[in-house]
């Protein structure tokens, strides 16, 4: 797994991930092709296989995929200083751009033209969220258990006002029970695999 993990110097890590951060419009999976070109094809810091594993890890851990990738690649190629430089690099473009907008935004937002623009943009943003819901829902809600959890969470929040974090923790518990009940044999097998010492470097 580590055969392709090349050493990297700190400025190269910073600038590569600065580029990734600067050209990732829309967030989420939009920046995967940019990362792929920069990190795999140009710099050879990761293999394609490692990249796929990294996306899975990014999905299972909190935080934006771009940040997860930067931290991971930075650490793998240049230790903790590397992870700091790569993460700084990926965050800096959006940080400085949004800061600039926030500084000039108050005047911009009160302008009548901007208000008319946002009259049209706000419903479209609601549509963006609807679209995300549609796409993610089709991918994630694959069985009755999924639908039951999604609707329970929706109703529990809407009607009872349960905060999101306890809701997610309860859902995690339900998922564990459901998974145990349906894949009990698979777990034994996986536990054996987990103890298998694997050399990474």
């Amino acid at each position: 797994m580590s055969k392709t993990t090349n050493q990297a110097n700190l400025p190269a890590l910073f600038f590569s991930f600065f580029k990734v951060g600067a050209f990732t419009i829309g967030g989420g999976y939009a920046m995967l092709p940019v990362i792929q070109r920069e990190v795999i094809e140009t710099r050879h810091w990761l293999s394609t296989e490692e990249f796929v594993e990294l996306i899975a890890i990014a999905e299972m851990t909190p935080g934006p995929v771009a940040v997860n990738t930067a931290t991971f690649v930075g650490y793998r190629t240049a230790g903790i200083p590397g992870s700091v430089m790569a993460t700084l690099g990926v965050v800096l473009p959006s940080f400085s751009l949004i800061l600039a907008i926030a500084v000039f935004f108050p005047r911009f937002a009160s302008h009548p033209v901007a208000q008319h623009l946002f009259y049209g943009i706000r419903p479209a943003v609601v549509a963006l969220i609807g679209h995300a819901l549609y796409k993610l829902g089709r991918k994630i809600l694959v069985n009755k258990f999924g639908y039951a959890v999604a609707f329970t969470v929706f109703l529990a929040q809407l009607l009872l006002g349960v905060p999101p974090i306890p809701t997610l923790l309860l859902a995690a518990g339900a998922g564990l029970l459901y998974h145990q009940a349906n894949h009990g044999d698979a777990q034994k097998h996986n536990n054996e695999q987990k103890h298998d010492p694997k050399d990474r470097r």
Binding site: M60, F145, A150, V153, A171, L176, H179, K194
Partner: peptide, 30 residues
């Protein structure tokens, strides 16, 4: 860790958390 993605525990947790996230997004939309 390596092979975290193959662990049965993480799979179980995400069996529950992923649809819950869909419910949360539905609420935001609402």
């Amino acid at each position: 860790f390596t092979g975290l993605t193959k662990s049965s525990w993480t799979k179980g947790v995400f069996t529950g958390v992923k649809p819950a996230v869909i419910g949360l997004i539905g609420l935001a939309l609402w």
